[in-house]
Nucleic acid binder design. Sequence first.
DNA 1: GTTTTCACG
DNA 2: ACGTACGTGAAAACG
Length: 615
Amino acid sequence: MQTYRHAVAGDTVTVHVPQTREDFTRFSSWLARANRRGPVALDTETSGLDIYSPGYRLRTVQFGDERDAWVIHWERGPAFQSAARAALRRVDRFQIHNAPFDWAVLDEHAGAPLEVLAPRTTDTRLKAGLLDPRQPQEGGIGTGLKPLSAHYVDPSAPDTQGDLTQIFRSLGLTTATGWAGIPLDHPTYNLYAGLDVILTARLDPILTRELDRLGVRPELVQYEHEIARICTHMQRAGMVVDESYVQELRANLTYEEQHYADVARRYGVENVNSTRTLAEALVGMGERLTERTGSGALKVDKAVLSALADLSLQGERLNGRTPNPLAEAVIRSKRAGKWRASYADTFLEVMDAGGRCHPFVHSMAARTGRMSVTRPALQTLPSSDQMIRRALLADPGHVMISCDFSAVEMRVLAALADVRRMREGFLAGEDIHWFTARLVRGAGATESDRKVMKGAGFSKVYGGGVRTAARQTGASEEAMARAFAEYDRLYPEIKRASRRWQREAYESGMVFVSATGRRLPLDRDRTYAVVNYACQSVARDCLGQALLNIEEAGLLDMLKLPIHDEALLSAPREDAADAARAVEKAMTFDLYGVPITAEAEIGGRSWGSLYGADY
DNA sequence: GTTTTCACG
DNA sequence: ACGTACGTGAAAACG
């Protein structure tokens, strides 16, 4: 047996790497004792992140407690694998840091189903996120195992991932190839594989104590674990990629990118993505660039370029000036290039052997608890037309269903701030922006009145000011200032709630506690953001509740993606109408007397069918 | 690594 | 004292 010793928080800990039959007997008796004492920490090392790609390898499975870790070399063959499998079956409670990753890996490569692992798991990353959801660059501890261990367990805890990156380099490997290529026997690799579970085992009780001390309800912790499981379920199911469509799409986008890059080259711009050379070329053509970026450089983003090209942001001709041909070529080349690289290429890159992509669905990504989707980032596909979404399909024989909450953040604001007249509007089933416009401007309120009031409403939810609201809606600052005043008179509870929430946060160390018990740290220099945090985080919890309700309704296997205020599902064509009704029901409930409602739309086979063409 | 840009709710 | 649009992920350029 290979063993390694290391100091953690003043204790000597041991990492065991079993090789022989006797070693496995010792592992087995250790596991039986550990399992009787309490939860067992679990982790995996793998060849990388593309869990479902051909050639992906599970390399080691680690088990541990506060003093001992056992690194099982899964990659070495059947004897090692059956020991790991038996251990996975035997343990009653697991502690995992970032469980969704290991759940997915073990489900796909070790025959340990998500359905078995997840209910037995407590995730230290989720717990840490409920204590402080900020990223390190936002001033938080972060939710990585290294920063959390350094903060809560031992300031000298090694940076197991960062140090290994150095070792990869010394072996002639990169961050991308290192996890697959490092020899299984490498001492540091094994030591760190073991330390990760030991640190997780030590972290978990500390985080539990902290959650208790700060009054975070165990129900909220449990709720987050259920949502994480549902998100991993969605990842495992994945979405069908229409490969031949993507190939064709890629060719078309590449052609457009090249063609307009050639046009730009005629005006001396060799690289359309180089903002500095582009700004110089435009100035050289006699254009006046006035807007600056944060660091003082001349701004040449889509808004600036569209104005020069005499185009609206949607690409329609404005007929306000002579179009600048360079600006137009750059817009088109950059757009095609981005759509190719960010979407078409990634779809093909992450596809499994069966033609599906399996995005990571991070159940608690943003400071407000909002979810995010990566590899590929399916929450941010262009929605202006169906071109990109057309590449993703419902399951065979299925159609896509999208169900959106209706104006959920406005409803949440009405509920949380207890806005009397706004609640009346929602209870009467009104479109809230028309409702506001009529209350303020009378029965003759116009479309333009509604637009201004909608802008004012959004500003309340975002904590924005008159100037930005005017810019966003295209209204004059005077008109917007009047709308703000009318809004405040009509719904005075919003300002009162904002002041109350800021005061509450101030009194508890700049942490606002949401209606669902989520701890939301505020930045000292923009406490006004508390209104947005309150609304965005509770809207997120409405979506979380919807996911639980959808599972309860028996539709878990149809779920594809959460998109902030929307659930995307794939349902058998003949059941689609029933499924759509059931999802609407799952997304309809009461929030402090304000109705939260949702509307489903049934599409065709492709996601794109919900955005235009009927396919 | 940081900056800039652009895609979404 | 006053006013402040919120939250993400990803690619490419640049130093």
